[in-house]
């Protein structure tokens, strides 16, 4: 098991390198640059820059260098100093912009993942064991509605109902009086009052597919020979179902963690934008629109790394729960 993990960790290094190159190339691909947009915006307001000034800006950001050199500088700074360049839009180091928002993004992402599982797993088991029952149909309908409804619409609707019912306006993660305030118990309580909405909305999008995967696998597993064999041993039905077929049916869900992690971070963009959350999503959107290349590149890097780490995590988890996947064997 340890050898398996070490091997996978070593393989990640070239993968991350490739990802960083591709991220960087992606940033350079669209025509124009931050400076051009900046200059155009100034021109629109009537301020004309001369060529010397424009070149000075290019130089200031290192944009006059060839692309390869720009990449090497960017990566080198990241590896040696942990710097990710400077954001043009925010006029601050990219690292500060990201670190300010990443924790909240991560909390929302992980909480959504947990909520998704907490909803999807029991419903999936129920749906499979009571196939074609009223409950199965109800769960299926609700699941698909969650999948089909645009997230932002659901966020707006729930936000409206909460406001209409209680007078509480959920905009952002904190109420106005706590924004920028130091952490306190009151602020935390205020956060809890707001953060559930994005969590529920994001989780609702993911539950349907998990329910369907679990239901389909469990329907298949519960009729397998080993279930009959175990029933013939005299195991109580509930224990039998939970210990054998459910355990097998959970495995495909574990392998979805790999792509769920980055999806939850990038998938919250529209919800965060709608609800005005101080997370990474809206920053990515703004940076992409403003061609803020180092910021976009760094966020894309983080998302891609999350995919890689998520895949590794799900592989390790799978190997841990499923002996058939482990590489070592008992020699006979």
């Amino acid at each position: 098991m340890r050898a398996f993990i070490v091997r996978r960790l070593i393989l990640i290094i070239p993968l991350l390198f490739l990802i960083s190159v591709i991220s960087f190339v992606t940033i350079l691909l669209p025509p124009g640059s931050y400076v051009e947009t900046y200059v155009q915006n100034l021109e629109r307001t009537g301020f004309i820059m001369d060529q010397g000034q424009i070149e000075a800006i290019y130089k200031q950001y290192g944009l006059d260098q060839p692309a390869v050199l720009q990449y090497v500088l960017w990566m080198g700074n990241f590896l040696l100093k942990g710097e990710m360049g400077r954001s043009f839009i925010y006029q601050r180091p990219v690292k500060d912009v990201i670190m300010e928002r990443l924790p909240m993004s991560a909390i929302i992402a992980l909480a959504s993942l947990v909520v998704t599982w907490l909803i999807a797993v029991p419903i999936g088991i129920y749906s499979a064991l009571r196939q074609y029952s009223v409950g199965d149909y109800v769960a299926t309908v609700i699941g698909f509605v969650g999948l089909a409804l645009p997230n932002f619409l659901l966020a707006l609707a729930i936000g409206y109902w909460v406001f209409a019912g209680t007078g509480r306006a959920i905009t952002g993660l904190f109420s106005i009086e706590y924004k920028g305030a130091p952490w306190s118990i009151d602020k935390f309580v205020d956060l809890l009052g707001n953060i559930w909405l994005p969590i529920v909305v994001i989780a609702s999008a993911g539950t349907a597919s998990l329910i369907r995967i679990l239901r389909a696998t469990l329907l298949d597993e519960k009729n397998k020979q080993y279930v009959t064999t175990t029933r013939a041993k005299g195991l109580p039905e509930r224990r039998l179902i939970m210990k054998y077929p459910v355990r097998v049916a959970i495995n495909p869900l574990i392998s979805t963690i790999g792509w769920t992690l980055p999806f939850i971070v990038s998938g919250e963009i529209i919800v965060s934008q709608t609800l005005g959350l101080e997370t990474l999503g809206p920053v990515l959107l703004a940076a992409a629109l403003g061609e803020d290349m180092f910021l976009v590149g760094s966020i894309v890097m983080i998302l891609s790394s999350l995919t890689v780490v998520g895949t590794l995590l799900s592989d390790i988890l799978l190997a841990w729960v499923d002996p058939r996947i482990r590489f070592e064997r008992i020699r006979t």
Partner: peptide, 19 residues
Amino acid sequence: RGDDIGMIFQEPMTSFGPL
């Protein structure tokens, strides 16, 4: 089941839970 009457089946390959 399993105590007074034991049973073995046709399919040994799939008769045990895999995990």
